[in-house]
Computed example of a mutant assay.
Amino acid sequence: MAAERADAARNRLAILRATEELLVQRGLEHVSLDAVAARAGVGKGTVFRRFGNRTGLFRELLAERAARIRDAIDNGPPPLGPGAPAGDRLIGFLDELATLAAKNITLIAAHEQACAADKHQDPTYQRWHAHLVGLVHEIRPDADAEFLAHTLLGSFDGELVRRITDRGGVERLRTAVRDLARTIAPAMSAHATDPPAGSHAHTPGR
């Protein structure tokens, strides 16, 4: 059984890498279960059983990219992790998402297109939204935290990220999203300041 689990893990990694390579090199229209299976060196049935369809491939690839952010939120040091004021945590989380989005624009855009019909049901989106709802509610208990959390996540639309970073890089995106957060949640902690330049080297994503 251990050997089977190791094989399954290797196949999963090969399938995700093949999906990403096809997406970056040839575009969304060339990502199919057949093409992914051929590039990964596995049967189409293996891809289908593990991921179901192309949407499943993109969801899993995004979840992999977001895994370290998820772990840092739960167990990492502040301000991203527990222990910091909600305003600090909000800014820290949005900074991490900005870096992730800027480094994975093609994946983010493809994920949005493939999951357009049920974007808000995506597990990664739901985790991010729930985290933001908790932070916004703590900062502004009088506000509609659910709506404001959706509004903040809308800042990371793939094509919007591409347009903004093309004309100012990830720092422009981070600054703009921080400004939006402070506009909709002005009661953030007075200690919620912009992290110093170069403080994002640990951020996951490629």
Rank of each mutant, 00 (worst) to 15 (best):
A38C: 12
H202N: 09
Y125M: 10
A67E: 15
H120C: 08
T203I: 14
G158V: 06
I69W: 12
H191N: 07
G56R: 04
A109T: 15
N75G: 11
G169L: 08
A116K: 09
E64S: 08
D144T: 00
H131N: 15
L94E: 10
R70C: 03
D142G: 10
R162N: 08
L16Q: 11
G169S: 03
H131W: 10
R39G: 07
R174L: 03
G198F: 09
R49A: 14
K119V: 08
A201S: 11
P78D: 10
L100R: 03
V136L: 10
L61T: 09
R50L: 14
G134C: 08
A14K: 05
P79W: 02
I91P: 06
G45D: 14
Q113M: 14
E159M: 15
L135S: 00
A190M: 11
R50P: 07
R174E: 03
A84T: 04
R140I: 07
R172V: 05
V42D: 01
F147Q: 14
L152E: 00
D34S: 08
P204A: 06
R5H: 08
G169R: 04
G45N: 14
E138R: 10
S199E: 04
S32E: 04
L107T: 07
R140E: 15
L153G: 04
L160A: 12
K119W: 14
K119D: 11
P141G: 04
G52T: 13
A187P: 06
H129V: 00
E60Q: 14
H200T: 11
T55L: 05
D74E: 14
L80C: 01
L57E: 03
R26V: 09
G52K: 14
I184D: 00
T203A: 14
P141T: 03
R59V: 13
A109I: 13
L180R: 01
G27C: 06
W128A: 05
E112R: 09
Q113K: 15
A201R: 12
A40K: 01
R70F: 10
I184Q: 02
F51V: 05
A98K: 07
T46R: 11
A114Q: 15
K44L: 00
H191E: 13
A181D: 07
A14L: 08
A145W: 01
L16E: 09
I164H: 05
L135H: 00
V177F: 02
V177Q: 02
A98R: 07
R10Q: 07
L152R: 01
S155A: 07
T124Y: 04
A130D: 13
H111M: 07
E29D: 05
Q126V: 02
H120Y: 13
S155C: 13
T99N: 13
F156T: 06
T106F: 01
A9K: 01
G87R: 02
G169H: 05
A101E: 01
A3E: 11
R26N: 09
D122T: 05
S189T: 10
